[in-house]
Design a protein around this nucleic acid. Structure first.
Lengths: 247, 247
DNA sequence: CGGCCCCTTGAACTGTGTCAATTTTCGTGG
DNA sequence: CCACGAAAATTGACACAGTTCAAGGGGCCG
């Protein structure tokens, strides 16, 4: 696994600004959990007992609706937080968290967090900033899903993944985790079939390369163009191939 | 205007748990703004200088995308907060806020809020709870938009409005503010035309009654059925008319 | 080697957006 | 009070993106 490890609590926005001694105390309150691929950290609907920070590996957060429809909310990588809900007592996890690869997560039990926030107001303020920022992008994403066409959504999803979990290879940027067409579909809110067709088109155009649960982005610029609807209409005329490196 | 007034700061989740004297101090820091219909409280992209709590009336928060696409994020009624972003320095409003009727809003300037949170940690904790809760419903709404069909989304939007801004009349539940088909479309992420057709069908089925910028829900149960996809497929067979009151 | 899962491809259907034309409603000013 | 104009809403025709369903290929692991 070439994925980076992330062990520095001070770098986590939640604990930013705490003194070394305090950080040590915080670290002492955590439990480390190890998950094998496909193993669940927690289940949607269960009481939220712990907040987690990923040390190494990756989690997939997905939500399942009353009708059985499933949506991948986001992926959580090293250094990122999941289950902010656990900051408060008596909440339920709104999503399930599943490891996509072998994953290590530092977990803080809910009561410890409450104590922490009372003793260090700084932590509460930090905590406030995180969901607040996420909330700003939230309507943005909603608008995108509501109004953009599928090709744009899929392209956007790929680019986002590339930023968060991309690894440079001589082929281009490879998404550094198993990512099936189905995952991509559930991330973009569409079906496997449409994703498959899109990927086939893009592969023919030289934008991406794929395999079983594997995606490589060879020409990010082209995907950006699609995401921005600059070239969304033509499925026939490839119009752009990888020329030079212009990242 | 039959709309309720909302003047009690203690009832607002942001200031819950403060002593009477503290509340008085808080109240002293606010400015009251009066808006006429269609007047703007703030504009998307402007620096977030103030947080507001609606006293009377109603605000419409809408976001406009790079492509010009417009989406109504939510309506803000008496007692509700808007522009939580203003809790932090150097943020931009992610949406625009427009009064849909004559509206009064209590506004707190950003620096005052910062002082408040430092002096009363309680306020910071309260503040944390709000976006945190909203974040939980956020993926929910995303999933709905991504996977549900338009009829369901519109039905859901109507029901949500009825809960927040509904007024009982002998006809049923009337949405107590001017609400055009266009508004409804932008709220549900669709077009005026589709909304118009749906409303026509539902009116024929006796579920709703409408007029220019006016909507009355005569048979909420029927809308719920549509929202839950129990009867989404049939546009011909009405299948349910208002029989008795079974709210 | 066998079976499972992932992926692909084709064909048919359909929900929804797009566009243009008309009607209805309301507010304003003569 | 009526007439006018603007904005909102309706309606029909049409196109097409994307889903659905069915069938088949291919790779990976036990």
């Amino acid at each position: 696994m070439t994925a980076p490890e992330h062990d520095d609590l001070g770098a986590c926005p939640l604990f930013a600004g705490l003194a070394a001694a305090e950080l040590a105390a915080v670290a002492a309150g955590a439990v480390e959990r190890r998950l094998r691929p496909r193993e669940l950290l927690f289940l949607q609907g269960d009481p939220a007992l712990e907040l987690g920070i990923v040390v190494a590996g990756r989690l997939k957060l997905n939500q399942i609706g009353a009708d059985g429809q499933e949506l991948i909310v986001r992926y959580v990588g090293p250094g990122e937080i999941c289950a902010l809900v656990a900051l408060f007592a008596d909440q339920l996890y709104p999503v399930s968290a599943e490891a996509v690869v072998a994953t290590r997560v530092r977990c803080w039990p809910q009561p410890a967090l409450e104590r922490l926030m009372l003793e260090h107001p700084r932590v509460a303020l930090n905590a406030l900033r995180i969901p607040s920022e996420r909330m700003q992008e939230s309507p943005e994403r909603l608008r995108v899903v509501a109004t953009d066409r599928v090709a744009q959504r899929v392209a956007r999803s790929l680019l986002r993944l590339a930023r968060k979990a991309g690894r440079r290879s001589e082929q281009g940027v490879e998404i550094d985790m198993p990512l099936s067409r189905e995952d991509l579909a559930r991330l973009a809110g569409t079906t496997v079939f449409t994703v498959s067709r899109l990927m086939a088109d893009w592969e023919a155009a030289g934008l991406v390369a794929g395999g079983r649960e594997r995606v490589v982005i060879r020409y990010p610029h082209g995907l950006v163009a699609i995401a921005e609807d600059l070239a969304a209409r033509q499925r026939d005329e490839p119009e752009a191939g990888p020329r030079g490196r212009e990242d």
